[in-house]
């Protein structure tokens, strides 16, 4: 336990903080902190879109760090350069390391070639959130969309990422025993993270295709 004397840069990154127990805290603890983060920004935001933008920028810096962390921990030193592989990286590696599971699906928009959707049926950030009617379109997962944007931007794929809560259609997603978190009912909304890549990212990817 000579952690205090060791410089933070000398500590191993593999096992975060040297914590023995698989490095988890309770979901409640996360929810309390996240709730305070949202409240804090809500006090300072004049509109729903400003609140979302503030949450996104809070997530953005987290995303940059997460990318670095995952990249350092990965055994192979490789860097994703292709559009599809970075999207897979986000929806599997990033999701697994942050939320303990892969994203439920990754889809390409039919209408727009530059748009992709990452879908999560049980988004962690909005687990205990119920959006009041006067906040209407607010998605409490805006923070996560910020993280995604941070990861993508850090990897050289600048993109605009927005979070949307979309009602789950009947029979679309069924899981035995309802919610995977015991004690709360199945979720009515899924989170759709819409990723819209910048034109230069697409043209670069097209150039790599050849």
């Amino acid at each position: 336990m000579s952690r205090s004397s060791t410089n933070i840069l000398d500590r191993p990154l593999g096992r975060p903080g040297g914590r023995a127990e698989g490095s988890v805290v309770s979901l409640s603890a996360f929810a309390y902190i996240y709730s305070e983060l949202v409240q804090y920004h809500q006090q300072r935001a004049a509109s729903i879109s400003e609140l979302e933008r503030r949450l996104e920028s809070a997530g953005y810096v987290v995303g940059l760090k997460v990318l670095e962390m995952i990249a350092y921990r990965a055994k192979e030193t490789k860097r994703e350069t292709r559009l599809m592989s970075i999207l897979h990286f986000v929806s599997s590696s990033v999701w697994k390391s942050l939320f303990g599971k892969a994203a439920d699906s990754l889809e390409r928009s039919i209408d727009h070639a530059d748009e992709y959707m990452i879908i999560d049926y049980e988004p962690i950030a909005s687990t205990f959130v119920s959006v009041p009617p006067d906040l209407g379109q607010l998605s409490a997962d805006a923070y996560v969309s910020g993280i995604v944007a941070g990861v993508l931007d850090g990897a050289g794929f600048s993109a605009r990422v927005t979070a949307h809560s979309v009602q789950v259609e009947e029979g679309e997603y069924t899981k035995q025993g309802g919610n995977s978190i015991p004690g709360i009912p199945p979720r009515k909304d899924k989170a759709v993270f819409l990723v819209k890549f910048s034109p230069e990212v697409l043209s670069r990817d097209a150039a790599l295709e050849r």
Binding site: V24, V25, S26, I33, F99, G100
Partner: peptide
């Protein structure tokens, strides 16, 4: 019995606050 969340996400979220 508590549902769990990733401690790094927790730490980073607190950090951003």
């Amino acid at each position: 019995k508590m549902p769990k969340a990733n401690a790094e996400l927790f730490a980073l979220t607190y950090g951003s606050l």
